[in-house]
């Protein structure tokens, strides 16, 4: 009963945060996605006219429609861009998982006194701008770049490889950029794993390989799932990497969104793409969380 104003504000703060920084922008984008493209400032219509009172509000809502979504559904570009993003994000996540797991495993098995240094090395690239690191890959991958020069000089290839401006370059860029997000959560689960569990598995008749699949892998699952989400979700919406490293054939929803907004200045359509992208990302997240909850309640 005697709650102070301060403590009330403290409790309300996270909600306020969500309201101001997530819900409000979301509703604005949702509203724009239901609007029509127009030559005006900002470039869509209708705008809410509060001075007209109730009639203004009614007219405002009457003018909203799902035309942009119909347009998206009718044009295979957007679904293809989304599917292509799913594919690129999925394959990148898988490659990142394989590489990231190996590195995390090696880190967790490294002598304890080396670990902080090794973890530092994993985080180190973050100290440089992401853009600069992606630009560096251009220097490595381009036709006359470092990679081709190296391969040519050791005679492994006769003709320079075309990696730059292809999907391969996009995969390399995504895997490279997001690798730490995969390594760190997996490392965290592996590092706190009791090593006596592996001895117990061996004692109970498991080979090292069986112990890995029966004990280590299931126990690192939370880290794997977290890592995969941390890579997969931003990779789906990735724009910078496909724009800088990919070719004109690289179709990704983030790039499509950017083009709709900046090149076409089509705010309503761009907003519709953004809303769909959000929904399509929320679905797997919600499914995942529900499954986690079920697991916890079920046992």
């Amino acid at each position: 009963m005697t709650r102070t104003l301060g403590s009330r504000i403290l409790v309300a703060l996270p909600y306020l945060w969500l309201l101001v920084l997530f819900l409000a922008p979301f509703l604005i984008v949702l509203k724009i996605s239901l609007s029509d493209l127009a030559v005006s400032r900002p470039p869509y219509t209708p705008h809410l006219d509060l001075t007209a009172g109730w009639a203004g509000i009614k007219a405002f809502f009457a003018a909203l429609d799902f035309e942009n979504y119909t347009f998206l559904a009718e044009d295979s570009l957007y679904i293809n861009a989304y599917l292509s993003s799913l594919k690129i994000a999925g394959i990148s996540t898988l490659i990142t998982l394989l590489i990231g797991y190996s590195i995390a495993y090696a880190l967790a098995r490294a002598p304890r006194r080396w670990r902080p240094t090794l973890v530092m090395l994993v985080i180190l690239p973050f100290w440089t701008s992401f853009l600069i690191r992606v630009y560096a890959w251009i220097g490595i991958l381009k036709t006359e770049g470092l990679l081709n020069q190296a391969l040519l000089s050791i005679g492994l290839i006769a003709e320079p490889l075309t990696i730059m401006n292809t999907n391969t370059a996009v995969y390399i860029g995504i895997v490279y950029s997001y690798l730490p997000f995969m390594i760190l959560p997996i490392y965290a689960t592996l590092e706190k794993m009791d090593e006596s569990l592996l001895e117990a598995a061996a004692d109970l008749g498991s080979s090292r390989l069986a112990a890995f699949f029966l004990v280590t892998l299931p126990l690192s699952m939370p880290g794997i799932v977290a890592g995969c989400f941390l890579v997969f979700i931003p990779a789906i919406g990735e724009f910078v990497i496909p724009d800088l490293l990919g070719g004109s054939n690289t179709l990704m929803i983030g790039k499509t969104l950017w083009v709709e907004f900046f090149n076409n200045r089509d705010w309503p359509l761009a907003s519709a793409v953004a809303i769909l992208l959000l929904l399509l990302l929320i679905v797997p997240i919600v499914l995942f969380q529900r499954q986690q909850m079920k697991q916890e309640i079920g046992t």
């Binding site: 009791d194 006596s196 569990l197 001895e199 117990a200 004692d203 109970l204 004990v215």
Partner: peptide, 13 residues
């Protein structure tokens, strides 16, 4: 030979 570990080493999953 089987062993009962001091930490029990039960598989948590």
């Amino acid at each position: 030979v089987n062993m009962m570990f001091q930490s029990y080493a039960l598989f948590p999953h």
